[in-house]
Design a protein around this nucleic acid. Structure first.
Lengths: 244, 244
DNA sequence: TGCAGAAATTGGTTGGACCATTGAACCACT
DNA sequence: AGTGGTTCAATGGTCCAACCAATTTCTGCA
C-alpha cells in the first residue's frame, strides 16, 4: 500500500462561506468594534442563503466573542475581524477543582514570567508610571484591609501585560482570570491567602524599572510559587477541593 | 436507541439551557469522546424545543471543538464534557504578518520554557523514552535532508508538552502551530531557517532526563531565541514580511 | 415641548419541508 | 466467499414562512 495524499473534498460549507464573506464585508467597510453589522434578514437576502444559515454562522462568531447579538437592536462587532484570524477555543474541563486551578496557574506562571521579562525590556517611562501607580493602589489596599485584594492585584498584573507590547498575554490571561477570581473569593480556608505574594509585586516592579528582564522573570516565578504554595495548603486543609 | 432521562426545558435562554441539559446528559450517561450522542430530532423532541434551537446549541459546541457533526451519520463527542467547563475562545488577528508571528513566538517561548521545566520534574521513564524516540527521529531527518524538518520537530515538542502533565500547554500551542507551520514552509529567504535551533533539542532533552528543570528552561529559552533570530534575519532580508 | 403609547425593527423560536450524505441491508454475479 | 451495485432508512444541512420578545423609533396627544 503506497502513500496517498488525499484530503477530504469539501462539498458543502455554507456557513463558513458566509463567515468569509462577512469578514470580507467588515474589512471593506472598515467596521470597528462597537459598530452594528447588517441584520440577519439583509445578510440572508444579499448572500442568497437562508436566514437560518446566517444565524448558524453568527452563532459561531458569537461563541468566539467576535460579535454580540442584542435582541430587538442588532448584531454588533465586539472585536476586530480580519480574514486571517486564528481561532483558539480552549476548554478547560473540571475548572472548578484543584487540579484544574493548578493547571491554569502553571500557564499563568509561564506567561507571567515572560511578560515581566518583556516588560523590563520594552516599558517606557509612561508604562512604568502606570505600573507603579497600580502598584501603589494595590499596596494601599493591602495595608487598609490587611490582606491581598483581588481587583487591585489584577489591575497591577494587567498593567504589566499591557506594557509587554504583546496583547496576546493579556488576552490569554484574561480568559483565565475568571477562574482565579473564584478562588480568591473562597480561599479554601486559608485565612491569609495570597499574603505571601505581596512583597514580590514591588520586587517585580523594581526589576522592570531597572530594565532587568531576567530579574523580573525570576521575581515573577517566585510570586507564582507563593500562590501555588497557598493553593496546596488550602487543598491540604480541606481534603476535598471543591465539590461545590 | 436506548432510554434517556431528559426533562423538558423551562423558559428563556433556550440554547444555553439546551447545552446545560445536554452536558448533564453526557455526564449521566458517562459518554466519552468518540461516542455518538442523540440525534438532533430526538433532542428537540425530548427537550421540548425546536430542532433549530438544538442546532444552534450544537453549533456552539462544534465551534468549541467539543463535538463533531457528520452529515448522514450523527453528532459525535470530541472531548470530555462537564458542567463546570471553562471556555476561553481566543482570536489572534493579523497573525499573518511579521509582528503577529513574533507575538505568537513570544507566547511560545513562555510556554515552551515552562513546559520543559515541568517536564523535567514530572517525566517518568516512559515519557523520557518517548521523547528520546522523537528526538532520534528528528535528528535522523535533520541529517538526511541537511536541514530542520517541521513535522519531526513538532512531534518532539509535542512529546514534551504531553509529558508536562498539563494538557493546556498542548492545547494552546497546537492552536498556534498552524501559524508557525506557514512560515516554516516559506522561510523568508533564509536558507538554513531553524538550523541554529537544532543542537538545543538534545540539550533540552538531556536536562529533562537529568530532572533539571531550570536547565531545561534555560535551554528552551535558547532554542526559541535562535528561531527569533532567524525570523528577524528573514524580515530584514525581505523588507516586507508577507503581504501574501 | 414632553412624554406615553403605537408601530416598526431586529434577534429568538417554532414547525415543517426537502436535500445530501452516510451506512446498513440486500442482491446479483463471479 | 467475495466483489460490486442498488435500495432504503437515518441523520445532519438548508430552506421557508410564520410568530414571539425585546428594543428602537415614530407619532400624536396633553
Amino acid at each position: 500500500m503506497t502513500e496517498f495524499s488525499l484530503p477530504p473534498i469539501q462539498t458543502t460549507a455554507r456557513d463558513d462561506a458566509v463567515l468569509k464573506a462577512l469578514a470580507g464585508f467588515v474589512m471593506r467597510e472598515k467596521l470597528e468594534p462597537g459598530e452594528r453589522l447588517p441584520t440577519e434578514r439583509i445578510l440572508a437576502e444579499r448572500l442568497k442563503v437562508s436566514r437560518n444559515t446566517v444565524r448558524e454562522a453568527l452563532t459561531r462568531w458569537e461563541g468566539l466573542g467576535l460579535v454580540e447579538r442584542r435582541q430587538g437592536s442588532g448584531t454588533y462587532l465586539k472585536a476586530a475581524v480580519s480574514l486571517d484570524m486564528l481561532h483558539m477555543p480552549l476548554t478547560l474541563a473540571g475548572g472548578n477543582d484543584f487540579t484544574g486551578l493548578m493547571r491554569t496557574l502553571e500557564i499563568r506562571r509561564a506567561l507571567e514570567a515572560e511578560a515581566a521579562a518583556l516588560c523590563a525590556v520594552r516599558a517606557d517611562e509612561d508604562d512604568l508610571a502606570e505600573i507603579e501607580r497600580k502598584l501603589d493602589i494595590m499596596e494601599d489596599a493591602f495595608k487598609m484591609r490587611a490582606g491581598m485584594s483581588s481587583d487591585e492585584d489584577w489591575e497591577f498584573h494587567q498593567a504589566i501585560y499591557r506594557a509587554s507590547g504583546n496583547p496576546l498575554f493579556e488576552q490569554i490571561i484574561a480568559a483565565m482570570h475568571e477562574l482565579f477570581h473564584r478562588f480568591w473569593e473562597h480561599p479554601l480556608g486559608v485565612r491569609d491567602f495570597g499574603h505571601a505574594s505581596f512583597p514580590y509585586h514591588r520586587t517585580i516592579f523594581n526589576c522592570i524599572a531597572a530594565h532587568d528582564p531576567e530579574g523580573a522573570r525570576a521575581e515573577a516565578l517566585k510570586l507564582i510559587a507563593t500562590v501555588e504554595d497557598d493553593l496546596k495548603r488550602g487543598a491540604a486543609n480541606l481534603k476535598l477541593a471543591d465539590r461545590k
